[in-house]
Every structure is written in structure tokens, then in C-alpha cells.
Design a protein around this nucleic acid. Structure first.
Length: 363
DNA sequence: TAGACGTGGGT
DNA sequence: TACCCAAGTCT
């Protein structure tokens, strides 16, 4: 790092805040700079809820879920009073379902404290589902603490600004220290959100719009010629492919046979159609012999679903099936299917057997 | 500490 | 098509 870097950081933060005042995004969970300057304070519940939803999840995907959650559960106490299953159903489709389980656990703890969130990083960090990033984000945005908020956007912006050659995630410590030195004591929350907005709209992973960047004169990576080379990352391991079968049993009235997955692990606590396991590699063909119960199963196609750490190929089988649901299973009538806690992969499986079955029905 | 943990959109 | 990667956390 060049010796003048230390003195340039406050100027960089000031330029970033000026840019944010003019170009910040309007988001459902955000209290904008104008409202803040009039003395309005963010609601810690909304800040917390949005931050949990935004973990590894795009802003666009979160918007409708956030709106639905705060309409249905306007406070942390309301959320704590909700049934676990209702929260899982409302979360279905958003992914990383342990977040939903931790969300409820956290709401319970906070509600037991009178519905008041801790207002320090340390206190927040102790809560389930809140790690270093989220603790810093809430402390900074909701409580104006000068915390170093470092997410993927900030990593990218700072890596380029200082042209950090250390690969991620190793560089994280260095990045956090640099951010800490830049946080302006007057507007820590806006600074955090400004850095993230810049990363999301200007300093993007590919083809960054450096011509419009308020920090273009400060950026070491741009000066060196190619900002897209940063941040440096280690190569990722190859993604394995797994195979299994899913069995869609259909009653005369169109109801579909479902069951609940174990609370822990992949898609934990969510609902599924009966499936073979897919923890191990399954090479070759699947067969109806693997079904949880005998029936004249007919092959109804195949789906592919990509998880973070493996690709899943599911052979889909379909059968008409009368009578009582087997032990541990239940029938979901056609009008209920949309509201079940079905992960996207399971909706795909059902829709492959019964086109459109999981779509919302007209009332 | 490195792997588990979802999904969808962009290129 | 295939790969990247997004406001990360937990174990």
C-alpha cells in the first residue's frame, strides 16, 4: 500500500456518501438518507429480517418475500408467535432453509427480551443466524455503530480500490481492517449501504461501469488497467452429479402425496414428494422398485436441479393411488399445493408429473 | 477449516 | 451450455 493511502481514505468515504445521497437504491426495507437526516430511525426488526433474507440472495428475489413477511408479521413478537410451519411455508422458494429455522429461533429469543434487539455487534453476534457480516450490518444500519460491514460487494469494491493481490477468502482480514479505517463516524449505516450499492450497480463482478464510478480516481485496480481481475479467488472444486428418483402419487381428486423432510440437513424441515435418497452417487438407471410403496409407477420424465455443491438428476415417476396416506405421509389437495413448504426442486418434480400443479389457483 | 447449504439471473 | 455469484452462517 502506498504511503498516501492512509490520508486518502476519509476523502474516499466522503465521495462515496455524496454519490449515495444522489444515486442510492430505493428498497422496501431501507430508510433513505433524506429520512435519516430528518431524524427518522430504521426499525431494527425490518433491518434484521432483510439482512437475513439477503444472505447469499439477490435483492430482486428478496423484495416480495420481505413485503409478505412484514405484512403478515409486522414485529419480531408477531413473528415469534407464528407457527414454525407457517414460517417455513412463507420462506419456501427463497432457499437456504436453515435461515428460516434460525429466524424463528432468533425471534423467540428477542421477543423474550421484550422485543428489543441487542444494539451492539457482540450482542447481535450471539443470536442464531447472525454471523460477522449480519451483526455488523444491523449494528451499523439500525444502531449507527461504526462497524466494518464486509459482504461480497464490499470485498469486491475494496479489493479493486486497493488492488489486493491476496486471494479470497484469505484476504478477508485485510479487507475488514481497511473498511474499519474508512467508516465515517457520522454515517456508518449509509457508508455500509453506499459501498454495497456501489458494488451492486457500478463495481459489478463483470464489466464494471468505471466511467460512472465516484471512486474512479481513487481506484488502484483501474489505474493498473483491469479491475475485473479483482478480487482474486482460488479455483473452485468440481461439482459432483447425483441421481435419484421422485414418486408423485395422485389421488382421484388430484391430491398429491407428500411428507416432511428431517429437520436437519439439505432442505431440512421442508416438504417433499417421496424420493429415493440421493446422498450417494447413483449411477445408471433408477427403477420404480425403489419407491416407498408398490404401485403401477409410470415414468413421467426427468428434471435437473443445481444445488450449490452438487447437481441432481431426478427421474420422475407417477401413479394413481387411492386410499389412506402411508405412515409419515399426507395428502395435499390441489388447492393447498401452492401453499405447502415445497422447495423449488420439489415443485419442479411435481410439475413434471402434473403440469402446472404447484401454480397458484384462481380463487 | 473446509464443506454443507438453494435458488435464480446474468453472461 | 456452463459457469459465476448474490447483503453468509454453521459445524
Amino acid at each position: 500500500m502506498a504511503p498516501q493511502d492512509k490520508s486518502r481514505k476519509p476523502a474516499v468515504a466522503a465521495r462515496l456518501l455524496n454519490w449515495y445521497d444522489a444515486h442510492h437504491r430505493e428498497l422496501p426495507w431501507r430508510t433513505g438518507p433524506a429520512a435519516l437526516s430528518k431524524g427518522e430511525r430504521p426499525d431494527p426488526y425490518r433491518v434484521w429480517l432483510s439482512e437475513i433474507m439477503l444472505q447469499q440472495t439477490t435483492v430482486e428475489a428478496v423484495k416480495s418475500y420481505f413485503t409478505a413477511f412484514v405484512r403478515r408479521w409486522p414485529s419480531v413478537s408477531a413473528l415469534a408467535a407464528a407457527a414454525n410451519d407457517d414460517i417455513m411455508k412463507a420462506w419456501a422458494g427463497l432457499g437456504y432453509y436453515s435461515r428460516a429455522r434460525n429466524l424463528k429461533a432468533c425471534a423467540d429469543l428477542v421477543a423474550a427480551q421484550g422485543g428489543i434487539f441487542p444494539d451492539t455487534e457482540e450482542g447481535l453476534l450471539a443470536l442464531p443466524g447472525i454471523g460477522p457480516y449480519t451483526a455488523a450490518a444491523i449494528a451499523s444500519i439500525a444502531f449507527a455503530r461504526p462497524a466494518a460491514v464486509v459482504d461480497g460487494n464490499v470485498e469486491r469494491v475494496v479489493s479493486r480500490l486497493f488492488r489486493i493481490e491476496t486471494p479470497l477468502p484469505q484476504a478477508k482480514t485485510e479487507i475488514r481492517a481497511l473498511v474499519q479505517q474508512m467508516v465515517p463516524s457520522g454515517r456508518p449505516g449509509d457508508f455500509a449501504q453506499a459501498t454495497m450499492d456501489l458494488g451492486a450497480t457500478i463495481c459489478t463482478p463483470r464489466r464494471p461501469k468505471c466511467m460512472f464510478c465516484p471512486l474512479r480516481a481513487d481506484c488502484d485496480a483501474l489505474a493498473a488497467g483491469d479491475p475485473e481481475l479483482y478480487p482474486v479467488r482460488l479455483a473452485k472444486p468440481e461439482k459432483p452429479r447425483r441421481r435419484g428418483a421422485a414418486f408423485v402419487a395422485i389421488r382421484e381428486d388430484g391430491a398429491v402425496l407428500l411428507r416432511k423432510r428431517p429437520e436437519k440437513g439439505l432442505l431440512g424441515g421442508m416438504t417433499e414428494v417421496p424420493t429415493t435418497g440421493w446422498t450417494a452417487r447413483l449411477d445408471g438407471e433408477t427403477s420404480p422398485d425403489a419407491a416407498p410403496f408398490p404401485s403401477p409407477w409410470k415414468r413421467a420424465g426427468q428434471i435437473t436441479h443445481v444445488f450449490t455443491h452438487f447437481t441432481l438428476e431426478l427421474d420422475i415417476y407417477r401413479a394413481s393411488f387411492g386410499g389412506r396416506a402411508p405412515q409419515g405421509h399426507f395428502w395435499s389437495p390441489p388447492d393447498d399445493l401452492h401453499g405447502e413448504a415445497l422447495p423449488t426442486v420439489m415443485k419442479k418434480a411435481i410439475d413434471a408429473a402434473i403440469p402446472g400443479a404447484t401454480k397458484r389457483r384462481k380463487p
